[in-house]
Nucleic acid binder design. Structure first.
Lengths: 198, 198
DNA sequence: TTCTCCATGTAAGTAGTTACATGATTGG
DNA sequence: CCAATCATGTAACTACTTACATGGAGAA
């Protein structure tokens, strides 16, 4: 069996573009917007990356572009070709590992926080917690949009990525609470003489 | 007030290198190992990046290198200079936002999983769950090392990043369980006629 | 008229990777 | 003596970003 048939040919971002076009005929500009609205929490693409990728996808006949100017404003929209459909489906279904890359300056600083005084370290944990809580709030705010996409357009999985994102950041925020308690109790290991005059 | 005094001068990876040296005199090779052992789950540096960075840090007088060959094998170890100490402390204490970047192919595929048949989509969720569980197991396995660093060397925060990592991936795995249940119940919305002949 | 949004394009640069090369040392 | 590990170095490449530029369209 030729298991090289299951290898990815394109970069992940190219599949993102295919996927967004699959969800509806789109211009480069609209693809960028869709990314910002929906997957920016676990994937980003810059505008400068999208247009060249679209050109190369069209050269490989995975998408087909059509000029659809709005008045005198130029505009090119794209559809998937059958080859594009199968490339996308093959990528979704292949059994290669699922690369996961995280670059978190917050965790980095926590790792080295022994070099800070206890108070600053505690504030750092609080800052991470605020960041996670904000992220939870942002994701909660998108939820209605995700629900209407599920109900109206029949796409259920965007909402599921939202749930996973919320679960993630909620867990981080909760763990921060526990860590803060521990840090505060470590700070005064024996309460021999209470100094709580306020 | 000169708030430009609080701006980072170096790339985050340079602070990682400073931090690792701060935890103990180290060679480039040992820095790479320390990264692999401890922070690889939220930060990576390639070997090819470390040596040039060390050179530039030495040129800026933030670290001081000493040749310490082992026999005839060349080896250069580094210590922080006072300037390096303050640069690291300033970075840890500054109040700039904490960049957080995630690139998760798993979530990406989930997002587009409506294009898969229900069975494949379910398997994809299971695959994500396995990945998270493996990650939890890996982090749990490092825990004893983190505990001994806390107890023996007095560095408590590495263990805390471990806790946060475990909380994160545990939450993802748990949410995957809930998602699977929902997907399975969606698959047979009314159990009018059971087809379970096996 | 001015501002915001729509829409595309590109130049210049950075940050990072993989892959390879070299050679010493240690342990079995 | 062979394999694994220690230790450094670098060439070539890719992905990606920021910043800028251009200009039409619609709304206030």
């Amino acid at each position: 069996m030729t298991d090289q048939a299951t290898r990815d040919v394109l970069a992940p971002s190219a599949y993102v573009i295919l996927g967004m076009i699959r969800l509806g005929r789109r211009s480069g500009y609209e693809i960028k917007q869709a990314v910002q609205l929906s997957i920016r929490f676990f994937w980003t693409i810059s505008q400068a990356q999208i247009y060249p990728t679209l050109e190369s996808l069209e050269r490989s006949q995975l998408v087909q572009g059509h000029d659809e100017p709005q008045g005198r404003r130029p505009r090119r929209v794209y559809d998937l070709t059958p080859a594009g459909e199968s490339a996308l489906a093959a990528w979704l279904a292949n059994d290669e590992p699922l690369p996961f890359e995280l670059r978190d300056t917050g965790l980095l600083k926590i790792f080295f926080a022994d070099l800070l005084d206890p108070q600053s370290a505690l504030e750092l944990v609080e800052k991470i917690q605020r960041r996670s809580r904000e992220r939870v709030a942002q994701l909660q705010a998108i939820k209605p949009a995700g629900e209407s996409i599920a109900d109206d357009e029949g796409y259920a999985f965007p909402l599921i990525t939202l749930r996973l994102g919320i679960a993630y950041h909620q867990a981080m925020a909760d763990e921060c609470t526990a860590i803060q308690q521990q840090l505060r109790s470590d700070a005064r290991p024996k309460l021999t003489r209470p100094t709580d005059h306020q």
